[in-house]
Design a protein around this nucleic acid. Structure first.
Length: 580
DNA sequence: GCCGTTTTCGGCCCGACTGTTTTCAGTCG
């Protein structure tokens, strides 16, 4: 079994969990967690870096010791440090940390005092009333544990950004109507446009916080109230989504917004910078001694620390702070930069609207062009187009273009990439199209080598323009297929073809880290809706959020180009094909 | 365990809410 970054990251997280239960040095624990994070966000296999003879201690948060452990895990598949810990403590113990309200200290007590290792044992002990007598526990805590054990599966789940938006928007509206509330905004991972959010962090300006948190807990979607004070309250909505509300005075709003937008890693890094300058940063402002030197406005807060404003989507401590200090922050792409959409379906296959309806909807979004890219014949469930039907559709689009004003339809196809890398329709018909969007819809479980070879070969087709949803993942439902994204991006560069960032809320595929790789390699990314109905164009905002998380600028995105520029770019793979 | 234009040793982000603590630890974000 090849060891991937995620495997190593999990080992480090387990070590951190166990050390924490043992009451080890918190900074040592954090070091393991930071290293796990570095590995997860590396964007390429650490194994590859090792093969290239790179020094792993150049990676952030990885020093001599952890580099050696990575080598050990890569070489042997094992980690002696973890095995040693697992001899001291039951390996399943970290599971208990996932239960809300249980931290390392309490898990330590449960294990050492009552020999509890598992949620099942915990439940039994709680039912028997044996937990309340432990020091630091009580009857309330015991009851709470039983309660959360039952709700456990529900509360642990994350919500797709688009789903969270459906809950966030009406809640914001409700809070804006509460007396005394001046302003409401959702911060946290929602504001950073993460593909999924664990909870909502809502921020409000008001003088009387107590009245506002009280009104918040009375919102009719609230299922249970976890805590409530004069500046903060936490509730669970009926959907299972947790919402934290914080209320701050106007003079602290910028500091609070910055603080609660996170990410945690970003905040820590920025506060360390502030600390070195003799400043303290908290949710109420930036402080020099007892005097607040900034607070009401996010831009001013960052300025006081000596940094330019950093877009929320970048705040992951993945180089944005260094870029900010060097004046090298990207000028991120905006939704309004999009001039068209290069992936949409019609009723001819599995779409719900006619080509004309789709064209009009795209025009209403201000688009200059829309590519119709229905499925190809192999995808029979979607009634995929064969050669004959595609030729008929080409004719239809030509006719529509003659009478449509203000928008141009591009002739395309979302053609299946077959298992051997051939495309699902003959070149003779692909040649007649403006663009060919290739996609994997089958054989997801090929080995990494085979899957990579399959897609590389598809890209070699002279008519191949754009690789749709490049990892094939469906958030929470289907893991990405195993493919060497670095090689795909490199090959796209050589072939002159492009990658899609599919904006469908279930896909958001390319991942943000892949976008960064594409950008560094100079491969343009198309942010596409994959619309199956006229409403689906609205999903582009989530795609743009993801693109911004991937540091993409307007110039990095294919469909920010004018139709004229775009046509030239779409012809590039064909031109390159002749050069062998 | 990591890290370094104040440091190779001595630091490492900061505050709110809860429950059981009668002065604060634990958890969370």
């Amino acid at each position: 079994m090849p060891v991937h970054n995620e495997d190593i990251a999990r080992i480090f997280d387990r070590i951190a969990d166990l050390l924490e239960i043992e009451g080890d040095n918190p900074f040592r624990i954090r070091a393991y967690r930071n290293a796990a994070r570095t590995l997860r966000e590396l964007g390429m296999d650490v194994r590859k870096l090792v093969e290239q003879g790179e020094d792993l201690t150049t990676l952030p948060g990885i020093g001599r010791d952890l580099a050696a452990k990575i080598h050990e895990i890569l070489d042997t598949g094992r980690c002696r440090a973890l095995e040693k810990l697992e001899k001291k403590l039951p390996p399943e113990l970290p599971e208990l940390l996932r239960i809300p309200g249980l931290g390392p200290k309490r898990v330590h007590a449960l294990y050492h005092e009552l020999d509890i290792h598992t949620p099942e044992q915990l439940e039994r002990a709680a039912r028997d009333g044996r937990i309340r007598d432990l020091p630091g526990f009580g009857a309330r805590t015991e009851a709470r544990i039983l309660e959360t054990l039952h709700a456990h599966a529900d509360t642990a789940r994350r919500f797709k950004l688009a789903v969270a938006a459906q809950y966030a928007e009406p809640l914001v509206e409700y809070l804006q109507g509460v007396k005394g509330v001046e302003r409401v905004e959702v911060a946290g991972s929602y504001r950073r446009a993460k593909e999924t959010v664990g909870d909502l962090d809502v921020l409000a300006i008001a003088k009387n916080g107590d009245a506002v948190t009280r009104a918040f807990t009375r919102y009719d979607e609230v299922d249970s109230v976890l805590s409530r004070g004069p500046t903060r309250a936490t509730v669970i909505l009926g959907s299972g989504l947790q919402v934290d509300l914080r209320v701050v005075p106007r003079e602290s709003y910028g500091a609070a917004l910055y603080y609660f937008t996170g990410s945690r890693a970003h905040n820590i890094a920025v506060r360390r910078i502030a600390q070195k300058r003799g400043l303290k940063v908290n949710e109420y402002g930036v402080w020099r001694g007892d005097s607040r030197i900034a607070g009401d406005d996010e831009k001013k807060v960052l300025k006081a620390i000596g940094l330019p404003w950093i877009p929320p989507e970048l705040r992951e401590n993945r180089g944005e702070i260094e870029a900010a200090r060097a004046g090298l922050l990207p000028d991120l792409v905006k939704l309004s930069d999009l001039r068209g959409d290069l992936h949409a379906h019609s009723r001819a296959t599995d779409g719900h609207a006619s080509i004309l309806e789709m064209a009009r909807a795209a025009r209403a979004h201000g688009f200059e062009y829309l590519a119709i890219t229905d499925h190809s014949r192999r995808l029979t469930v979607a009634h995929g187009l064969d050669r004959k039907r595609l030729l008929a559709q080409i004719e239809t689009i030509d006719q529509l273009n003659d009478r449509l004003h203000g928008i141009t339809l591009l002739k395309g196809i979302e053609v299946d990439i077959l298992e051997d890398g051939r495309l699902d329709l003959p070149d003779a018909v692909l040649e007649k199209l403006d663009l060919v969007v290739g996609a994997v819809h089958s054989s997801f479980d090929l080995s990494r080598a085979k899957q990579t070879r399959r897609i590389l070969r598809a890209m070699d087709n002279p008519y191949f323009t754009l690789l749709a949803h490049p990892t094939g993942r469906l958030i929470d439902r289907r893991a990405p297929y195993d493919v060497d994204m670095g090689r795909l991006i490199h090959h796209a560069r050589q072939r002159g073809c492009y990658l899609e960032l599919n904006a469908h809320p279930e896909r958001l595929d390319l991942l943000d880290t892949h976008c960064q790789m594409a950008r560094e390699e100079g491969v343009l990314v198309a942010v596409n809706s994959d619309a199956h109905s006229i409403a689906d164009f609205d999903n582009l905002r989530f795609g743009i959020g993801q693109a911004r998380r991937g540091w993409l600028e307007k110039k990095d995105v294919l469909n920010t180009r004018t139709l004229r520029q775009l046509r030239r770019l779409l012809a590039r793979p064909r031109r390159n094909a002749g050069k062998g």
